Simulated scan of single mutants.
Amino acid sequence: MLFKISELGLKETVNMVDGAKMGAVKDVYIDLETGKVLSLVLSSGRKYFGLIPAGKDVEVQWERIRKIGIHTVLVEVEPQNE
């Protein structure tokens, strides 16, 4: 299956450990020398008053990505205590 990196931001990201929605893909880190994807940056998704970002973005290492599907990205990371 082929897809554009820009399409990742449209997919829901779900943690397989606890079933939590983690936010949309905001950015992708790529090693320019090897061309390998190193990690995905997920937007916190939370906002104060619907406008101001609240919380930190989450970086998920490529090794923790389990499946990129049509509508969902499945990751396996330990939940963050906030």
Score class of each variant (00 low, 15 high):
5 I>Y: 06
13 T>Q: 10
14 V>T: 14
7 E>S: 15
5 I>A: 15
77 V>P: 07
38 L>H: 07
8 L>A: 10
45 G>E: 03
57 D>H: 05
61 Q>L: 11
61 Q>D: 07
3 F>I: 15
25 V>T: 03
29 Y>F: 00
32 L>F: 09
35 G>K: 06
2 L>D: 06
46 R>L: 11
38 L>M: 08
28 V>I: 05
59 E>H: 06
71 H>T: 14
34 T>D: 08
32 L>G: 00
9 G>W: 01
27 D>P: 03
44 S>Q: 13
40 L>H: 04
80 Q>S: 08
81 N>S: 14
7 E>K: 13
2 L>T: 13
53 P>T: 00
57 D>C: 06
24 A>T: 01
48 Y>C: 01
21 K>D: 03
52 I>F: 14
69 G>E: 00
63 E>R: 14
81 N>L: 12
17 V>I: 10
14 V>Y: 06
55 G>C: 04
2 L>Q: 09
9 G>A: 01
9 G>L: 02
20 A>T: 14
34 T>Q: 09
47 K>R: 13
45 G>S: 06
56 K>L: 04
53 P>G: 00
68 I>W: 05
22 M>L: 15
32 L>V: 13
65 I>T: 13
16 M>Y: 04
50 G>Y: 09
60 V>P: 08
67 K>D: 15
33 E>S: 12
60 V>C: 02
63 E>G: 13
73 V>Y: 08
13 T>D: 11
16 M>K: 15
36 K>S: 07
39 S>R: 04
40 L>N: 02
68 I>V: 13
60 V>I: 10
17 V>G: 08
49 F>H: 03
42 L>S: 01
49 F>N: 11
7 E>R: 14
29 Y>H: 07
70 I>P: 02
33 E>D: 11
34 T>L: 13
48 Y>E: 01
65 I>Y: 06
32 L>I: 10
40 L>D: 00
13 T>G: 01
80 Q>W: 10
65 I>Q: 11
71 H>I: 06
22 M>N: 05
73 V>D: 09
11 K>P: 11
61 Q>E: 13
8 L>H: 09
41 V>N: 00
54 A>Y: 14
64 R>Y: 02
75 V>A: 09
53 P>E: 02
71 H>E: 08
23 G>D: 05
57 D>W: 03
62 W>R: 05
17 V>S: 12
82 E>W: 15
67 K>H: 15
26 K>E: 10
9 G>H: 09
71 H>Y: 03
44 S>R: 03
63 E>L: 09
9 G>R: 06
57 D>S: 09
39 S>C: 04
53 P>D: 00
62 W>K: 12
20 A>G: 08
34 T>F: 12
7 E>V: 11
14 V>A: 06
81 N>D: 14
8 L>G: 04
29 Y>Q: 07
